[in-house]
């Protein structure tokens, strides 16, 4: 994997810092505050008790003073853990390897941006199982380790299936996860996404699609071989079949987008021919909640 220009990475990190951090909470008539309520140690503010709040957060002194139950809220920790999950199945070899190149470039840029923001970043490269992993780390020194993990693995051209569920066991705590892949699988991928979301504080999905996935180099009677499963289908290939394949690809993306919207998972899709910077910025803008 080629290294990305440092200047572009820094530029992207600044953009990502603005788009990844939630906007500050501003109380009416008060000065703006940075941060947001969540799990943390530093006091944030008080509010009246609502069902579901933990009882241990009730501030009894304030409750007695106000005559109603009041809970203490804490400011969420500014740094978190991000796990970058890269699909390294054989289908990522399609499109002359453009999908894998874009995925690894995006992972590199995200890793740089998250590290620049002070997050701890880890990486899981998966196919049937996790084939390469880089544990969580922080700081400038961790970035080369992430790059080495990326560089040491190349997707197998045949026989490597895509199973996102293999990453679930590697997620300790409640990290944030960013999944990059082509999602050219059936319902299994959605089930894995649901399971992954349950184990993550935040989950983002970037689908990398290639028009070459629905294009066949020859026409006539051919035997189609699935790169991942090895399944073979004999059939007649012509222009109408390619049109149908493109339609099936679009339908698959539509289904995945619908699933993510329903699950509250930020999702975007980009073409494999796109450059990593525009692909990521478009994703962050599309998934940013002002």
């Amino acid at each position: 994997m080629s290294r990305l220009p440092a200047a572009e990475l820094k530029s992207f990190a600044r953009v990502a810092g603005h788009l990844l951090v939630d906007p500050p909470v501003r109380a009416a008539g008060s000065r703006g505050q940075r941060g947001r309520p969540g799990v943390g140690l530093e006091y944030f503010d008080h509010r009246y008790y609502e069902p579901g709040d933990e009882l241990r957060h009730i501030d009894w002194r304030q409750s007695a003073r106000r005559g109603a139950a009041v809970v203490r809220r804490y400011q969420v920790e500014t740094s978190s853990e991000w796990i970058l999950c890269l699909d390294a199945s054989s289908s990522m070899c399609g499109g002359d390897g453009a999908k894998w190149r874009l995925a690894s470039a995006c992972a590199t840029a995200l890793a740089y941006a998250f590290l620049d923001m002070g997050h701890r970043v880890g990486m899981l490269i998966f196919s049937d199982a996790v084939v390469a992993a880089c544990p969580l780390g922080r700081g400038v020194a961790h970035y080369p380790r992430l790059l080495r993990t990326l560089a040491e693995h190349v997707p197998a051209r045949h026989g490597a299936r895509s199973r996102l569920g293999s990453c679930i066991d590697r997620l300790a705590g409640r990290p944030c996860a960013f999944v990059l892949g082509d999602f050219l699988t059936a319902d299994q991928m959605r089930r894995d996404l649901a399971a992954l979301q349950a184990r993550c504080l935040q989950l983002q999905v970037l689908r990398i699609a290639s028009t070459g996935d629905a294009t066949l180099p020859i026409a006539g009677h051919v035997t189609l071989v699935d790169r991942e499963t090895g399944e073979r289908v004999d059939g007649i290939v012509d222009a109408s079949l390619e049109r149908a394949a493109r339609a099936a690809d679009a339908a698959m993306e539509r289904d995945l987008r619908g699933f993510c919207r329903a699950a509250g998972v930020p999702f975007s899709a980009c073409a494999a021919t796109r450059d990593w910077r525009s692909a990521l910025v478009a994703h962050l803008r599309a998934t940013h909640r002002p």
């Binding site: 289908s91 070899c93 399609g94 499109g95 051209r157 045949h158 082509d182 050219l184 699988t185 059936a186 290639s210 070459g212 996935d213 629905a214 066949l216 180099p217 020859i218 051919v222 035997t223 189609l224 071989v225 699935d226 790169r227 991942e228 499963t229 399944e231 073979r232 289908v233 059939g235 007649i236 290939v237 079949l241 149908a244 394949a245 099936a248 690809d249 698959m252």
Partner: peptide, 13 residues
Amino acid sequence: SVAVASILLFRDV
């Protein structure tokens, strides 16, 4: 034979 990314895209073959 032609290798494809996913045979699911060619269900209508």
